[in-house]
Design a protein around this nucleic acid. Structure first.
Lengths: 118, 118
DNA sequence: TTAGTAACTAACAAAAAAGTAAGTAATGAG
DNA sequence: CTCATTACTTACTTTTTTGTTAGTTACTAA
């Protein structure tokens, strides 16, 4: 749980106010968040499918990440009344607007990895 | 200090390999890094000047951040043989290539903040 | 009735990141 | 000789994030 009185928290808020890119990082700057988002965008929509494509993620981290993305309105949960239970996650329009940012970050990352190789 | 044997570290490396945007986040995904980078890019080049424009950063965090940006070859240090001592930091060409990514993140952040207001 | 599957949650521990307080080195001014 | 300035470093603590293990609910198939 976040401690709202901490200097750490206040500094984060100051930076989000002073530097809008910190707001962007607020949505994607965690270990598994951008990866989960990316996979959902690619059409991997279910809990267990996400676990397959991200083999080292733990149940807890996947659930946490999904919960935060849902609270932030980046993805939405759809519950299908079937058995066995089927729940799927989809990008919201707001979430989709983040993808082009991730794409540019991806391009820069790929480029950098290439240059390091050479 | 980073523990190279930790699951945390291994997961980070897996993600940098699997999702190139994680490589980008590796360079800017910390509390003060993108802000310091941004300010240096805007022409704030000295330790004490950076402290002025980022009033809540501690000496230690600023020094750490500058050191990491230097090790990552994003900025470079220029020492002027003057008294009092003058040291300035400048973006490298590699560092400059990151700015367009930060600019897009900034635009998305500004937009999002605007939408939240309305 | 036992086992299995999907999608989780809770309690706890370890690791990493950030913050605090004090100190350092080189120089020059008074 | 003491103080001020610039640009840091060190030792330590707190906060935050990540990971581990075990359990839960609702259903179905054998």
């Amino acid at each position: 749980m976040r401690k709202l009185s901490s200097v750490n928290f206040k500094n984060e808020k100051f930076l989000e106010y002073d530097c809008p890119f910190m707001t962007t990082l607020h949505f994607i700057g965690k270990r598994w968040k951008p990866a989960v988002l990316w996979k959902i965008n690619e059409g991997v929509n279910r809990f267990n499918e996400l676990k397959k494509v991200l083999p080292y993620i733990s149940d807890k981290m996947l659930a946490n990440t999904i919960n935060e993305l849902t609270e932030d309105l980046i993805i939405e949960k759809k519950i299908y009344d079937e058995t066995p239970l089927r729940i799927e996650y989809y990008m919201t329009d707001f979430g989709k607007s983040l993808i082009s940012v991730l794409e540019q970050m991806n391009a820069w990352g790929e480029n950098t990895l290439q240059e390091i190789k050479n």
